Simulated assay, not measured.
Amino acid sequence: MKRHHIFDTGFYFYSIFALTNGETNLLFKRRENADGKLCMDMDSVFDKTQIYDTSVCLFECAKDSGCKSVFHARDTGNCTGCAASFDISTQPSGQDEGFRYYMQQRCTEGWNNLANSCYYITEQNMNASQGLETCQALNAYPVTVDSEEENNYLKALINSKYTYTDDVRAFFIGFTDNETEDAWAKHGTNDQMIFQDWGISEPNGETRENCVAFYFPSDLKWVDLSCSIELRMICEMEALA
């Protein structure tokens, strides 16, 4: 381990490790909803003792490719690695009041993870150019939906966070036919769209509508819209390894 930074913000505990094997970055987040529990039996990857420093316990998990989360009891020095991550909907089977829970994160706070990508929906409405600049400022890019799985995940994410209002009606994604009409490509590239989920009679805006968005009134099917309309933008970046 070359560098080790600890950020304790009260409700969340962050630990970022830069490892010698390929400089892999790992982020651990404290999840208080699973405190006092414990992964058991087949869910357990390792069970170590006499590790009183939380950062050392987390590093034991970081070194083990099968470890996704960890329970640590600072008073007793017990450090248990788990093969799964737990949230509100999935709880570990064991109980032990002395343990605090930390789960491995592949995305920074405020972003959402699916497979190898992290996603962020801008808080403000903006036109497509401003959305592109916002994503780039976050070291990300407008999301390019490449599969049904990713498409369904983003729809579920939107539905979990928003309801349809005049202010929240559509969400830009990273395709445009600005260069060639009806040749939909990723913003700023010639990479063609490989998956699509157009609504009925879409796209239909011809040269007046050169950007793509999830559209609430069409059950979040895709529509083409003017790039000057102000909507929220969905940004994407690569998840931590």
Rank of each mutant, 00 (worst) to 15 (best):
E149F: 09
G199S: 15
T122F: 04
I158S: 10
S129C: 00
G188F: 05
G131Q: 03
D75T: 14
C211T: 10
A239Y: 00
F11Q: 07
V145L: 06
D219I: 02
E238L: 08
N113D: 04
A170S: 14
N210S: 07
K29L: 07
I88R: 14
T189L: 08
M237R: 14
W184R: 05
V223R: 12
E206D: 10
L58C: 01
N112P: 02
D166N: 14
D47R: 10
A115Y: 06
E109H: 09
Y12E: 13
D87N: 15
W111P: 01
T144Y: 09
F7R: 13
T165M: 07
Y141C: 01
T54E: 07
M42W: 05
N112F: 15
H72Y: 04
V45R: 05
M193P: 00
S129K: 08
C211V: 08
L220G: 02
A239Q: 00
N159P: 02
Y162Q: 02
T80G: 02
D177G: 01
E32A: 11
E181L: 14
Q91A: 12
G199T: 05
K2S: 11
M1C: 09
W184S: 05
V223A: 03
T122M: 08
E97M: 13
F214Y: 15
D219M: 06
N125G: 03
S147G: 11
N125E: 09
K37L: 14
L240W: 00
T108M: 11
D96T: 07
N178S: 08
Y12T: 12
F195Y: 15
Y215I: 03
G98Y: 02
F59M: 12
G66E: 10
C107M: 08
K186E: 12
A239I: 00
G10K: 05
F7M: 11
L114G: 00
